[in-house]
């Protein structure tokens, strides 16, 4: 048994301290709202206990003004905190464009992280200090939830759908990382650590765990092996849309709507091409649903994301 009794979790980011300050403030408010109740109950129980002779004249049994004020005033005070916390929350939903992008695949019962340089790791995540990091996550089976207490962050990881989470850690160290959504037998073992490193240490770590191909390059290989390039290249005779600069651009669909091509759209188009047909193309693409795992999909999506407009490379 470790004898020390930690009473407060590590703070590894500015967001973590912002959440803690919000909690202190709000705790202050709820004490202000509840302590008078506790004190009054005790005072009344003593002062007006049965059989004790005290002045009980002018009993009142209702006072609408008083009742409205003890409903409305606490509510308005609480509302201030609502705006504060919503503001912090909205911030979590807007990762900076410059963020380092790391892909996460969850499966029972492990976490797999893919760095853009192609480095992969399991149940351990290395990130540089002071740099925004964005995690794009998906599950291969049930719902999991990536929880990093030192960052006060958690996001469910769903099958079939990407979710994201971003943070900027500003204190080097080793912190816990766990699965927070119950996922079956070994749920309590589904965790590890994340390591926040100085920039140069991170760079060195990347090198040491070096792989010869970036994630996008690995994706490109898959793009060819699975025959995607057969249709989606300028040289192809089949009428299929070019994927240059696709990422982030609006796509007109057959139904008449337009959709922004994000990771989710790209993934869905690979797995269920008939579901969201780009306008003007025949529905000839086969599904890759039972062909590609989430790991490979992540790589192919990374490759397609890397294709800037007019940058199509002729394959040698």
């Amino acid at each position: 048994m470790r004898s020390d009794l930690p009473l407060w979790p590590d703070q590894a980011s500015a967001h973590a301290s912002a959440v803690d300050i919000l909690l202190y403030g709000f705790t202050g408010l709820i004490f202000a709202l509840s302590v008078p109740v506790f004190i009054l109950i005790i005072v009344f129980a003593v002062r007006y206990r049965r059989g004790r002779k005290v002045n009980r004249r002018h009993q009142v049994n209702r006072n609408a003004l008083l009742e409205v004020s003890w409903s409305v005033i606490p509510f308005l005070l609480i509302l201030c905190f609502f705006f504060w916390s919503a503001w912090l929350f909205f911030d979590l939903k807007h990762p900076p464009a410059s963020a380092l992008e790391i892909d996460v695949v969850a499966k029972r019962w492990m976490w797999k992280f893919q760095h853009p340089g192609g480095q992969g790791e399991i149940d351990e995540l290395h990130v540089p200090v002071g740099e925004p990091v964005k995690l794009t996550m998906i599950s291969q089976d049930v719902i999991h939830s990536l929880y990093m207490p030192a960052l006060r962050l958690k996001q469910d990881v769903l099958p079939g759908r990407y979710t994201t989470m971003w943070f900027q850690a500003d204190k080097p160290g080793i912190y816990r990382l766990t699965c927070a959504e119950f996922c079956g037998t070994n749920h309590s073992l589904m965790g590890g650590h994340f390591v926040v490193m100085a920039q140069q240490d991170y760079a060195r770590w990347l090198q040491e765990s070096g792989v010869d191909q970036t994630l996008a390059a690995q994706g490109e290989t898959l793009f060819r092996t699975y025959g995607c390039s057969g249709c989606h290249s300028p040289a192809a005779t089949v009428h299929a849309p070019s994927l240059d600069g696709l990422y982030g651009r609006p796509v007109a669909l057959q139904g008449g709507e337009t959709i922004i091509a994000d990771e989710q759209y790209i993934r869905d188009s690979i797995l269920l091409p008939q579901q969201q047909m780009a306008a003007g193309y025949p529905s000839i693409m086969p599904t890759f649903k039972n062909v590609l795992g989430e790991d490979d999909l992540t790589k192919i999506v990374a490759y397609i994301k890397s294709l800037k407009a007019t940058q199509w490379r002729e394959h040698p």
């Binding site: 709202l33 109740v37 009054l40 109950i41 009344f44 129980a45 007006y48 206990r49 049965r50 059989g51 002045n55 009980r56 004249r57 002018h58 009993q59 009142v60 008083l66 009742e67 003890w70 409903s71 606490p74 509510f75 609480i78 509302l79 609502f82």
Partner: peptide
């Protein structure tokens, strides 16, 4: 947060009920 209002009303009203009661 809004659903807390009616719960709060009850608690404050119970406290006020004790005021000048004959408490057992």
């Amino acid at each position: 947060l809004a659903v807390a209002v009616p719960s709060g009303i009850k608690v404050y009203n119970w406290t006020a009920t004790l005021y000048k009661g004959h408490i057992s």
